[in-house]
Design a protein around this nucleic acid. Structure first.
Lengths: 213, 213
DNA sequence: TAGATTGTTAATCGATTAACAATC
DNA sequence: TAGATTGTTAATCGATTAACAATC
């Protein structure tokens, strides 16, 4: 028997959910009880039609003639995004980017718990970031065998990435949040990879600046 | 008479160009002279058909029976992305994220030149990052009137964003690389915005982790 | 020349938008 | 009830894939 019948939500929709989530949070904070697809469309710069389509992917609890209940919708999207099931994560690389991510990002409110930070350099090891002491990368195996993190955050140079990815996969890591310029992409199917590639983002901006002139 | 006849390249294609650029750079470094769409497709995990479609958007200089010349293609994509026309940029916010971006990102090779860093806090102002001394935000107007930066990089709290965006627009800034959790998006048409939204990216990862279990 | 691979057109697929009946 | 707004189907649009003739 197949229990997986729920029509799976397309990636295009999923990528819009965090944005809905942010706008609904603000609405909630401002005391809004309900919102119509038309109002929300004006706020977010989408079509009302798309909003209704999106929100219907997961059982419509909007009400005809009334709109959507803000708080309920906010909670539901959070639930779908998985913010209420924390996955443990290790951060590799405590350079500028690694430290910024570790201190700046509110992991817990986004379904992730940072449980370890690793670096190779003598300068970084031993320093305390948040409530975590930076460890030597040589200790990665022992740490992961005990704590079993599901996620690795890569803030390391391109050259270091291929080898580290292999080590992490062998240790059972299933998801990568990748800030390195290395492309993990399709090399390892079955693994979940979220590539950030800030350099690519900057180049896209560069293109549009040059084009518009 | 209309000189703008070049069929404009779709945003889906543009967003793939930086990735082509990276792979072609590696090929070039490894001494490859030419590459076929089939070989490149295996490397990148795309279809050969898509690669040929993409590369043809800007005048095909592949050769039948031979493939594409790596170096020439690399240069051409760089040119299209605008890496050879530097736009001046100011960075707002010298906290963890701002410092990481300023030190970590190779701006010049991506068509942008960082010419000023601004922050409000007494701790940050006066510090030197790269070759730039962090300035008070109160000096933003004077600085921009003289130097005319085209781009602003926002590494500031959500609350500070709306007001700062207005100030920057008034000073002639046309492009935003936005790391704040504020959505500049459609508020200001005519302006180019590249939103990074790291929190959204992490939530998407969170979703896929929860879903696959 | 024969083999390989592009450029390009046509077919498919998926995502967005429009329309409207159902219903609060 | 009348007005508003959803849920949902149908139409449109755009992007990806397949196919193949052109040509190096």
């Amino acid at each position: 028997m197949n229990y997986e019948l729920e029509k799976s939500i397309s990636m295009s929709v999923i990528r819009r959910l965090p944005r809905y989530y942010r706008f609904l949070y603000d609405l909630k904070e401002n005391g809004a009880d309900r919102i119509s697809s038309r109002e929300l469309s004006a706020l977010m710069g989408l079509t009302a039609s798309q909003i209704r389509q999106d929100l219907n992917c997961f059982g419509g609890f909007g009400q005809q003639g009334y709109g959507y209940p803000v708080e309920q919708l906010y909670d539901e999207i959070g639930h779908i995004l998985g913010v209420d099931t924390l996955s443990d994560a290790v951060l590799l690389g405590a350079g500028n980017m690694g430290r910024a991510i570790a201190t700046h990002m509110n992991f817990e409110s986004r379904g992730v718990r940072l449980i370890g930070i690793f670096d190779n350099s003598r300068r970084a090891v031993g320093k305390v970031i948040r409530d975590l002491t930076v460890q030597k990368v040589t200790g990665l195996e022992a740490f992961c065998r005990e704590r079993r993190p599901k996620v690795a955050i890569l803030c390391i140079p391109k050259e270091a990435a291929p080898h580290l990815v292999e080590r992490l996969l062998a240790l059972g890591v299933a998801g990568f949040w990748n800030f390195s310029h290395y492309d993990i992409a399709h090399h390892h199917p079955g693994t979940i990879v979220e590539n950030v590639h800030l350099g690519d983002s900057l180049m896209t901006l560069s293109y549009r600046l040059a084009e518009d002139k």
